[in-house]
Amino acid sequence: MTTFAYYPGCSLKGTGRAYEESLLPVLAALGIKLEELADWNCCGATAYMAVDEVKACVMASRNLALAEQLGHRELVTPCSACYLVLNKTKQYLGESRAVAQVVQRALGLVGLSYQGNVPVRHPLDLLVNVVGLPAIKERVRDPLTGLKVVPYYGCQLVRPYATFDDQDRPTSMDRLLGVLGATVVPYPLKTRCCGGSLTGTLPEPGLHCAYILLKEAVKRGAEVIATVCPLCQFNLDAYHHKIAAKWGPVRVPTVYFTQLMGLAFGLPARQLGLHRGLVPFAFEAGARRPEREVVPPDRPPPATPACRAGGPLAS
């Protein structure tokens, strides 16, 4: 059993707890153990960068230092924002000697130090490039045959720090879902912004981002959206009633890719946190006819849901 250092981030203890609930057993089933950093703190997220970049770096660096102290070769973090912030901090510390000095001094005050030798990786990277798709395929018990899934990566996992996949057209999750037996729906919006924190602060533009993603997923015949980030999942799952009120119903469930993996591995749905979605998702393995038709992207869209006038450009 291989062990990695684990930085969950605040969301995975709050609104995104289903992510952690599915991630840990799925990795365990593949022989990977995650050891949570003792007393980790908030990474600072994108909000802190807007207030003070140096302080943001200091805050995030404590986690990097804790990870080094723990002694595992690599640090795994599932939240896209945490992934970005921790990698960005590493980059800043590498690029700017002035920032690095300030950070080292701050860490020194509490008996910590930063060497810069622990890479920060995302579980998706880990699963596809370390565990490998053949090993995952071998572990599948109940293939997701016929389930039409939209792979949605969002922004901050693939931009700008990921080196394991393309910034605009990533394919890691596509391939992973394919191995689980699901039918992957071509989805050119896979790295388009979900609205981020704007859904909470400026609902009109923020929710419209989420609306377009949902509408196009439904148009392309998706039964479920798979995501890698707690904020993406929240935005696509929690605001359905608000979006419906503004632009019409676009109801499709959004789950974590690890939840789909858990299902395919034959783990019980409840144990995977699948009851936590506001738009419920249920899948019964084996109840499907294999290989169902997928609507090709260039065919005229189905009648529902109508793309209603009165979008942001008309208003």
Binding site: K219, D298, A306, C307, R308, A309, G311, P312, L313
Partner: peptide, 12 residues
């Protein structure tokens, strides 16, 4: 360049 629509006249 994308194939998804914001507005009805963009569909298709």
């Amino acid at each position: 360049v994308t194939d998804w629509a914001f507005m009805p006249e963009e569909e298709g």
